[in-house]
């Protein structure tokens, strides 16, 4: 197995790592770097639990070779809220609108929805549905999640 040195930015901080060719970003984050906010779910790219942003775009870190992060900006759930423990309006809205229950899918939901609001600050209901469709939640149903996004976007009725 070939090994590769990679340089990337993790939540604004420059990092280097040496990874094997088959290392996946999810395992680099959780096992090697201890950034366990990103959760492992299906491990086949379906459930959205392991969503992280690469240069601002959401991907499944369970399908993403760690070497592909070389030269890129990786943003995880740990990098969503600004320093100082203050939550973003979106995170606050997930709490207030009942956007989660057991919480396992929540990091992925928040990361996906953060990217949605960066791409579409005032998303229509259809845009929310289409974007978030690949982030599965088995507890709450999706109404609370949609309401939380609409609340953060200021489009809640």
């Amino acid at each position: 197995m070939s090994r590769h040195e990679i340089r990337f930015e993790l939540n604004g901080e420059a990092r280097t790592a040496e990874v094997e060719a088959d290392r996946l970003l999810l395992d680099l984050l959780r096992a090697d770097l201890g950034a366990t906010g990103t959760k492992e779910g299906c491990r086949i790219g379906i459930c959205g639990t392991c969503t992280v942003l690469i240069d601002g775009r959401p991907i499944s870190s369970c399908l993403y070779p760690a070497v592909y992060a070389d030269g890129r900006k990786v943003r995880t759930i740990e990098g969503i809220a600004p320093d100082g423990g203050k939550l973003t309006p979106l995170q606050q809205a997930f709490i207030e609108q009942g956007g989660f229950q057991c919480g396992i899918c929540t990091p992925g939901q928040i990361v996906s929805a953060t990217a949605l609001l960066e791409a579409h600050p005032k998303p229509t209901e259809d845009e929310i549905r289409r974007w978030m469709m690949g982030n599965l939640c088995r507890c709450t149903g999706y109404f609370g999640i949609r309401r939380a996004i609409e609340t953060a976007a200021g489009t809640a009725r």
Binding site: G45, R57, P58, I59, S60, L63, Y64, W131, M133, G134
Partner: peptide, 9 residues
Amino acid sequence: VATVRVRDQ
């Protein structure tokens, strides 16, 4: 195609 995450990769 699939989801926005797959389309981005």
